[in-house]
Design a protein around this nucleic acid. Structure first.
Lengths: 110, 110
DNA sequence: TTGACATATGCTTATATAGGAATATATAGT
DNA sequence: ACTATATATTCCTATATAAGCATATGTCAA
């Protein structure tokens, strides 16, 4: 078997550099396919394809407006990755072990 | 072109579920190839191959001891991913915006 | 050296893309 | 209906694996 389909796995979805670039762009606010295409200097079909992958793992949502489709980042679905990577943060920052406690406080979990 | 080679990109290296499992295991301490093979119920060659990929992106290091090779997690190289994902953390936690400041303090960057 | 154990590498196969080009679909305006 | 614009989809190709299997390499012990 080959690698898992990107459409079934957020980790695979963000493994593609241009998809990360798209995510970076969308973090600033919604953009049309054309905006993304031009900013990243992609071919339009490529942009649509990457957006499709991101949509399938629910990392983005679409808003229809006339001829255009405005894509929005659905960043919450990066949280599992965040949580996973965070569990290793203590490896590069000794004082990071206080972080978890801090985060709990932040979220009011006490 | 197809996807970027896993050997050149940490994001691709961790896109493979079993490699993440290996990383999870190594987080608790160094393990031999055999330990990993048995714990994850892999074929020995597969374990070696995954470890090779992880080694090539410098996510693990090896310690030779007789016939065995003990692999150690080199978690610092997960930091770029951590940093990237962290930049979206405010999207799922409103009060997360205080986090960056906190992290700077933690690391003494002021 | 011979044998046993531990690990790495090579080969083959099936599959999953990513990109390019062409085309299809959708929507708005005239 | 016709046209222009915006976006999505299809087909094709080259490439990158991941797994399975066989085999090679490395190391220790008798």
């Amino acid at each position: 078997m080959a690698r898992l389909a990107t459409t079934s796995d957020v980790y695979n979805a963000i493994a593609e550099p241009q998809r990360r670039s798209i995510i970076n762009l969308l973090a600033k606010g919604e953009l049309s396919v054309n905006d993304i295409t031009e900013t990243l200097e992609l071919n339009q079909p490529q942009a649509s394809k990457h957006l499709k992958v991101l949509k399938e793992v629910d990392l983005v949502t679409v808003r229809k407006a006339g001829k255009q489709r405005f894509y929005n980042l659905n960043g919450e679905n990066l949280k599992p990755i965040h949580d996973w990577v965070m569990s290793f943060a203590h490896l590069w920052t000794e004082r990071f072990d206080r972080l978890e406690t801090y985060l709990d406080e932040l979220q009011g979990k006490e």
